[in-house]
Amino acid sequence: MLVQIVAVICVIGLAIGQILFKVSATSLAQTGSFFALKTAATLLAAMTLYAITTIAWVWVLQKVELGRVYPLMALAFVLVPLGSHLIFGERFHLQYFVGVALIMIGIVVTVKA
C-alpha cells in the first residue's frame, strides 16, 4: 500500500513540476533572462521536484513491477491540464473530458489487472 501511495505522490510531483516549468517559461518570456529571480526560482523548484520524484520513483520500482505501476503515470495527463486550468485559466473542449474519462477507465482496468 505504501508503494502505491508513493507512486501516486510521484505522479502528483511530476504534474506540479510541469506547472512550475510553465511558470518559469512564462517568466522567461517576460524577462528574457534565466537569471531573473522568478524564472530561476521556479525553474530550480521544478528541477528539484523532478529530482526528488525520480529518486522516489526508483524506490517504487524496487518494490513493484514496472508494468503494474507505470499506468499510474497516465494520471499526469489528467492532473497537468487540471492544474493549467486552475492556475493559468486554460480552457478545454468536450473532447478533453471524453479523453480524461477514457484515461481514467484505462488506469482502473490496468491497475486492477
Rank of each mutant, 00 (worst) to 15 (best):
A45F: 09
A45L: 14
A46I: 08
M47E: 12
M47H: 07
T48E: 07
T48F: 13
L49K: 14
L49C: 15
Y50M: 13
Y50G: 09
Y50Q: 14
A51I: 06
A51T: 08
I52W: 08
I52Y: 10
I52Q: 11
T54N: 13
T54I: 11
I55E: 10
I55M: 15
I55N: 07
I55G: 08
I55P: 04
A56F: 11
A56R: 04
A56C: 13
A56I: 05
W57P: 05
W57L: 09
V58W: 13
V58E: 14
V60G: 06
V60L: 05
L61F: 11
L61S: 11
L61H: 06
Q62P: 03
Q62T: 10
Q62D: 12
K63Y: 11
K63P: 12
K63F: 06
K63M: 13
V64E: 15
V64K: 15
V64Y: 06
E65Q: 14
E65I: 01
L66P: 00
L66A: 10
L66W: 03
L66F: 12
L66G: 01
L66C: 02
G67M: 05
G67L: 04
G67I: 03
R68N: 12
R68G: 01
V69K: 10
V69S: 07
Y70D: 09
Y70V: 10
P71E: 04
P71W: 01
P71L: 01
P71I: 00
L72D: 09
L72K: 13
L72R: 13
L72P: 06
L72S: 13
M73E: 06
M73A: 08
M73C: 02
L75T: 08
L75G: 14
F77T: 07
F77C: 05
V78K: 05
V78R: 04
L79E: 02
V80A: 03
V80S: 08
V80T: 07
P81N: 00
P81K: 00
P81Q: 02
P81R: 00
P81H: 03
P81T: 00
L82E: 06
L82D: 03
G83I: 04
G83E: 06
S84W: 00
S84H: 07
H85A: 12
H85D: 00
H85E: 05
L86R: 04
L86W: 09
L86I: 11
I87S: 04
I87N: 07
F88D: 09
G89H: 03
G89L: 02
G89M: 03
G89S: 00
R91P: 02
R91T: 13
R91M: 02
R91Q: 10
R91I: 05
R91D: 02
R91C: 01
Q95A: 08
Q95K: 12
Q95E: 05
Q95G: 03
Q95F: 09
Y96H: 15
F97I: 07
F97A: 05
F97Y: 15
V98A: 07
V98G: 06
G99C: 01
V100N: 07
V100D: 06
V100H: 05
A101E: 05
A101N: 08
L102T: 02
L102D: 10
L102C: 13
L102N: 11
L102G: 05
I103K: 03
I103A: 05
I103W: 03
M104Y: 06
